[in-house]
């Protein structure tokens, strides 16, 4: 099975700090990592390949240093990587991004596209379903488990608010996955060495047959008009030492309103 995994470079949210003055995230010196949900999607792709054969290609749209996460994917076992990068793409919203990714994907043969349920930075979760709809593919979102691989379909579990659904989806298809879908492996030294020697295919604006007004800010229906801080720093009533019991009483009083 030929699988394409869409991956995104995001700031490492485990390492970011909050500026105590402004209450905003300190973005300088951000270490960039692969979006954790995409890492789980990649792991699922690698496991499918190990079970039934085929290949795994990772595709990412982003600035040139996105190459780092693509190398990471290659080190983990992906066979090929494509970086979609061009200055003109800057400022693309989810619609413009999805269109660019669609055009990149269409250059390759595939049976399955996988993406994380959302990215940990923008948190929109829109690009996966948008790409699927643009390409007229069947889409299953919030996939929590792969249950079976059939000749031209997959059986997957989908986790939603009120329960677990089991779907059979005909291939080719696009799935967005939650973290429970797989437990990512760690890269090996030999994998890392191999990845360093592998080529990363790079696609720019001129490779995709799009018009300038379809990408970047011009191709994006949404515009950010204002960004502002809301301070949510609260002043906690602290209960320590002998006063802990008093604090517990307050909590109990609050919870009584909800107790059954």
């Amino acid at each position: 099975m030929n699988i394409i995994v869409l991956v995104k470079q995001v700031p490492d949210t485990d390492k970011v700090k909050i500026d105590p003055e402004s209450g905003t995230m300190v973005r300088e010196g951000f270490e960039a990592v692969m979006n954790t949900f995409d890492l789980h999607a990649l792991e699922l792709a690698l496991r499918i390949k190990e079970m039934v054969g085929g290949s795994v290609r990772v595709i990412s749209m982003g600035p040139p240093n996105t190459e780092d996460i693509l190398r990471e994917a290659l080190a983990l076992g992906a066979d090929r990587a494509t970086l979609v990068s061009d200055r003109i793409f800057a400022g693309s919203d989810t619609l413009a991004t999805s269109l660019v990714l669609k055009r990149a994907i269409e250059r390759y043969e595939f049976d399955l596209i996988l993406a994380g349920e959302k990215a940990t930075d923008g948190e929109t979760g829109q690009v996966g379903p948008e790409v699927g709809a643009m390409m007229n593919l069947p889409v299953i979102t919030y996939v929590s488990k792969l249950l079976d691989i059939k000749k031209d379909s997959l059986i997957v579990e989908r986790s939603v608010e009120d329960g677990l659904e089991e779907w059979e989806v005909r291939l080719p298809a696009l799935l967005t996955v939650s973290r429970s879908v797989s437990e990512p492996r760690f890269p090996t030294l030999s994998g890392k060495k191999r990845a360093l020697k592998m080529d990363i295919e790079t696609l720019g604006f001129s490779d995709l047959g799009l018009k300038a007004d379809q990408v970047g800010l011009r191709g994006s229906p949404t515009r950010v008009v204002k960004v502002f801080n809301v301070s949510v720093t609260r002043k906690a009533d602290m209960y320590e030492g002998k006063r802990v019991s008093e604090g517990i009483d307050r909590v109990v009083e609050i919870l009584r309103r909800f107790s059954r």
Binding site: L95, E123, E161
Partner: peptide, 23 residues
């Protein structure tokens, strides 16, 4: 912005080629 809206709305936005703001 539940699993229904967060799945269907982006697909509709893609088909209608319009903007969608999440959450």
């Amino acid at each position: 912005a539940d699993t229904f809206g967060r799945s269907l709305m982006p697909m509709i936005a893609a088909k209608l080629e319009t903007g969608l703001t999440a959450d």
